[in-house]
Design a protein around this nucleic acid. Structure first.
Length: 294
DNA sequence: CACTTGACCTGTCCGC
DNA sequence: TGCGGACAGGTCAAGT
């Protein structure tokens, strides 16, 4: 669902749409757990503050405020951050056509509503796994996920660092190791499967049995697949949309993800799906060969 | 301590 | 058609 590329596309959109706007109001609706922070802090440090910049760390979005605080957003599986200008809100009310995949807002999945000067930002989350947390920018490290997050793929990770991080999980299978956010930031199910296919590594291979050359190829593949996805606006399976409510088209170009029963674009064999570490895992059993354990 | 499984949720899809 | 259950997967907590 939303992984690094999707969150990056969302971050870029938000930077174009809501920076320099002042927050007029913020409230959670229908899901108190979705907004984390005391009501007094929210009223004091969010309402009346100006949005200065939107950043990303792994799969987290960080909305910086002029008060020195920030709203950290994790979309988890079904979260969305959709901005509607006041004009767009009026048009929706009038039933005008739109290119948004999301209908009139708020809807029944809306969890947090942030009213800005010129529009409204909606945090929608069908399954309520996601959250928005208010925290001072100097205390971001209090969030364990933030503090332990591995290096950013788009900022250039030295291959020896990637290899060393992987080796901390030497006995783990390579796919669950990639999903460990302390090893590398932002990889989820889609880009794990796609990059393992590109690097021709069987997802069940133990990390200790993945040679250095394959690790280097794997890192390159992660970066390549993510950059390609960003260029296509990310992956939309069902829920993901950007800040304007539009989907991304990367899955049309995916080689194995959700393509079980279809043919491997490289060798023509049938792509299969297995369950690995509790996750659906797609790969080519012929050209992604498992290294023998010793 | 390292690793695996279950919980958190809700909408969709499949088989009966 | 209705219903129960499996499934989707990011992260943390609990269990082995």
């Amino acid at each position: 669902m939303p992984e690094l590329p999707e969150v990056e596309v969302l971050k870029r959109g938000l930077n174009e749409l809501i920076v320099n706007q002042t927050v007029k109001a913020i409230s959670s609706i229908n899901s108190p757990r979705s907004l984390i922070g005391s009501l007094s802090d929210i009223n004091r440090f969010v309402v009346g503050a100006k949005i200065t910049e939107i950043n990303r760390r792994g799969k987290m979005i960080i909305i910086n405020l002029s008060s020195g605080y920030c709203l950290v957003v994790h979309l988890k599986m079904t979260g969305q951050l959709v901005y509607r200008s006041d004009d767009e809100q009026k048009n929706f009310g009038a039933g005008h056509p739109t290119n948004s995949l999301v209908g009139q807002l708020p809807d029944r999945s809306s969890r947090v509503v942030i009213v800005l000067e010129k529009g409204t930002l909606f945090f929608n989350d069908q399954r309520k796994f996601g959250w928005i947390r208010l925290i001072h920018k100097n205390l971001l490290e209090d969030i364990k996920l933030y503090r332990t997050m591995g290096p950013e793929p788009l900022e250039g990770i030295p291959k020896n660092q990637f290899s060393a991080n992987l080796s901390r999980r030497a006995n783990l299978k390579i796919k669950p190791a990639l999903l460990d956010q302390t090893v590398i930031a932002g990889v989820g199910n889609i880009y794990a499967d796609e990059s393992l296919w590109m690097a021709q590594i069987h997802p069940s291979t133990r990390v200790k049995n993945v040679p250095a050359a394959s690790r280097g190829l794997l890192l390159d593949s992660i970066v390549d697949s993510m950059n390609t996805s960003i260029n296509f606006g990310g992956s939309t399976d069902r829920n993901y949309v950007n800040a304007k409510g539009q989907g991304g088209s990367y899955l049309k170009f995916a080689k194995v993800f959700r393509r079980e029963g279809l043919l491997c674009p490289r060798c023509g064999s049938e792509i299969i799906k297995i369950k690995l570490a509790g996750r659906g895992t797609h790969f080519c059993p012929v050209c992604q060969k498992e290294e023998q354990s010793s």
